[in-house]
Simulated assay, not measured.
Amino acid sequence: MPSPAVDDYLKTIYHHTEWQTERITPSQLAAELGLAPSSVTEMVQKLAAQGLVTHRPYGPIALTEAGEQRAASIIRRHRLIETWLVREFGYAWDEVHDEAEVLEHAISDRLLEGIDERLGRPRYDPHGDAIPDASGRVDRVPFVLLGTAAAGHIGRVLRVSDRDPELLRAVEAAGVAVGAEATVRDAATLRIAGADVALPTAAAEAVWLSA
């Protein structure tokens, strides 16, 4: 049955491996959700019993096929709503996350399909995260985190994490946008359109480029 609590768990597990390969641990999941480890352990056991995750005691957690399908469905809702708010209502990219968290559980499938069609069936949200299609498929290209990219690396800005609204505002103020061609000078500096752009230190762990 639909459950915002279950969806939040599945989304968090899904998010964890979108931009890196290590599976999430129960302690990491508890930290991400701001919950007590004992509460997370109990819920993970319930999710496993429902066939949505696989997990062994103290080991990492992985989504099953059914769990990934459900997670992709709610993430599709969230990211389409974010895109809709930016394009149709003039929201800034640092303002949409909390609104989408509320609306993703409220809108009907019919309205979601209408939003997708009106927007031209976008493949990426304003932050560069892939929007799953109705079947759960996503389009991704090889990527590298800014903090691990070698000096001289050339690529497109693929994604800026939406975890920290203040960082999003700082990145935007610096003139960095998703899709921009950039050359890495160092972990805090990109060269864009012939000019060096200094970024906050935190951007090293929040900006992804095409590999």
Score class of each variant (00 low, 15 high):
1 M>G: 12
4 P>L: 06
8 D>H: 13
8 D>S: 14
9 Y>R: 12
11 K>H: 14
12 T>K: 13
13 I>F: 12
14 Y>V: 10
14 Y>W: 15
14 Y>Q: 13
14 Y>L: 12
16 H>E: 09
16 H>A: 08
16 H>F: 13
17 T>M: 11
18 E>N: 14
21 T>I: 14
22 E>P: 03
22 E>N: 10
23 R>C: 12
23 R>I: 10
29 L>Y: 01
29 L>K: 00
32 E>P: 10
32 E>H: 13
33 L>G: 02
33 L>C: 05
34 G>D: 11
36 A>I: 13
37 P>H: 03
37 P>T: 00
39 S>I: 01
46 K>G: 09
47 L>Q: 01
48 A>K: 10
51 G>Y: 11
56 R>W: 04
58 Y>F: 11
58 Y>W: 08
58 Y>T: 04
59 G>L: 02
59 G>K: 03
59 G>A: 01
61 I>L: 06
61 I>T: 04
63 L>S: 07
63 L>P: 09
67 G>I: 03
68 E>F: 05
71 A>G: 03
72 A>T: 00
76 R>Q: 00
81 I>K: 00
83 T>W: 03
83 T>S: 05
87 R>F: 12
87 R>I: 04
88 E>K: 13
88 E>G: 12
89 F>R: 12
92 A>K: 09
92 A>P: 05
92 A>N: 10
93 W>E: 10
95 E>C: 02
96 V>F: 06
96 V>P: 01
101 E>M: 01
102 V>K: 12
103 L>R: 01
104 E>N: 01
108 S>V: 04
108 S>P: 01
110 R>C: 06
110 R>A: 11
114 G>V: 07
115 I>A: 06
115 I>D: 06
116 D>R: 07
117 E>Y: 12
117 E>Q: 13
119 L>G: 08
121 R>S: 15
123 R>A: 14
124 Y>D: 13
124 Y>V: 15
124 Y>W: 15
125 D>Y: 04
131 I>R: 00
131 I>G: 00
134 A>R: 15
135 S>H: 11
142 P>F: 10
142 P>G: 08
146 L>Y: 02
150 A>C: 10
151 A>L: 08
153 H>I: 07
155 G>E: 07
164 D>G: 10
164 D>A: 12
166 E>M: 14
168 L>D: 05
172 E>T: 06
174 A>T: 08
175 G>R: 02
176 V>D: 03
176 V>F: 06
177 A>D: 08
179 G>F: 08
181 E>Y: 08
183 T>Q: 06
186 D>I: 06
186 D>Y: 07
189 T>F: 07
190 L>V: 09
191 R>L: 09
193 A>Y: 02
193 A>N: 02
195 A>D: 06
196 D>I: 04
197 V>M: 06
198 A>D: 11
198 A>C: 09
199 L>D: 05
199 L>I: 04
203 A>Y: 04
204 A>Q: 07
204 A>H: 01
208 W>A: 04
